[in-house]
């Protein structure tokens, strides 16, 4: 589960935290796009350095590293698959290794590209970003509710498990099939309680005028600051330059040329 570690809410007051979430979202998308078009170790290293630097400035480096560690198994899988699919048709070992390393590296950059956004943006800011992107409120409400009620449901699940264990249910004993069957006494009450809760929530939403106006307003809003524009402008310039260079065929250590390096060994 640690791959999702980065998606949690961590309040913070650093400079990075205060950047407008839309700007951070754009930067994350730029990083993802560049990782997609550059299969190049140097560019990928540059990208991941940018991430590491900003994340460190925001004081969430340790969390980010945990996200990295969480992606190890998936990365390993990609490495093996790439290596095998390159080697089997008779590809040279060095070249295949080169591909495997670069693809794996790229995957890691992919997986971490949104860390900057998710690690330094509160769910509330995400919701505001969505509303600014003109996503219908029903969807935003669903997103917010999911985050709001996840801890509540987790507590409820724990207390149901405790109650059923007190009635002699041994969840961690027996064979797989019987273990699955043992989940019924936990899942049915959980489901019934979720239904009851949704009914109560719906009732409360009704008296709080949910859906009353087609033009819902928002008390809190995102305020884009001059510094945000500056950061965005810088990011766009860098991104555009990178795209231009790629289109023109420049790449400092592009995979195919880079492979000659391997071959030379």
């Amino acid at each position: 589960m640690s791959i999702f570690e980065g998606l949690r809410f961590r309040p913070g007051k650093s400079f990075i935290h205060r950047i407008d979430p839309r700007v951070k979202l754009s930067i994350s998308i730029f990083i993802l796009s560049l990782a997609a078009i550059y299969v190049d170790i140097i560019v990928l290293t540059l990208l991941i350095s940018v991430e590491a630097f900003t994340v460190a400035r925001a004081g969430v480096l340790r969390l980010w590293l945990r996200t990295l560690r969480g992606s190890i198994y998936l990365a390993l899988l990609v490495f093996i698959i790439t290596l095998v699919t390159r080697l089997l048709p008779g590809g040279p070992l060095a070249e295949s290794l080169g591909y495997a390393v670069t693809y794996t590296y790229r995957l890691v950059v992919f997986l971490t590209s949104f860390s900057l956004f998710f690690l330094t943006t509160t769910p509330e800011e995400i919701a505001l970003t969505l509303s600014r992107l003109r996503i219908p409120y029903e969807y935003i409400f669903a997103f917010v509710s999911a985050i709001r009620f996840t801890p509540v449901l987790a507590d409820e699940m724990r207390s149901i498990m405790d109650a059923q264990r007190s009635r002699g249910l041994e969840l961690d004993r027996g064979r797989l099939l019987s273990r699955v069957r043992k989940l019924i006494p936990v899942l049915i009450p959980l489901l019934v309680n979720v239904l009851r809760r949704s009914y109560e929530l719906a009732e409360a939403m009704e008296v709080k005028c949910f859906g009353a106006s087609k033009k819902r307003t928002y008390l809190r809003d995102l305020n884009i600051k001059p510094s945000d524009y500056a950061i965005l402008a810088a990011a766009i310039t860098l991104f555009a330059t990178a795209i231009y260079l790629r289109v023109m065929g420049y790449a400092p250590l592009q995979i195919l040329t880079g492979l000659e390096l391997f071959n030379g060994m």
Binding site: R148, S213, K215, T217
Partner: peptide, 20 residues
């Protein structure tokens, strides 16, 4: 079951926002 938001202020504003 009658608080929907991620912070108290938004919850107090909830109905008013719904009214537009």
């Amino acid at each position: 079951n009658q608080l929907f938001s991620l912070n108290v202020e938004s919850d107090v504003a909830f109905a008013l926002e719904n009214l537009g």
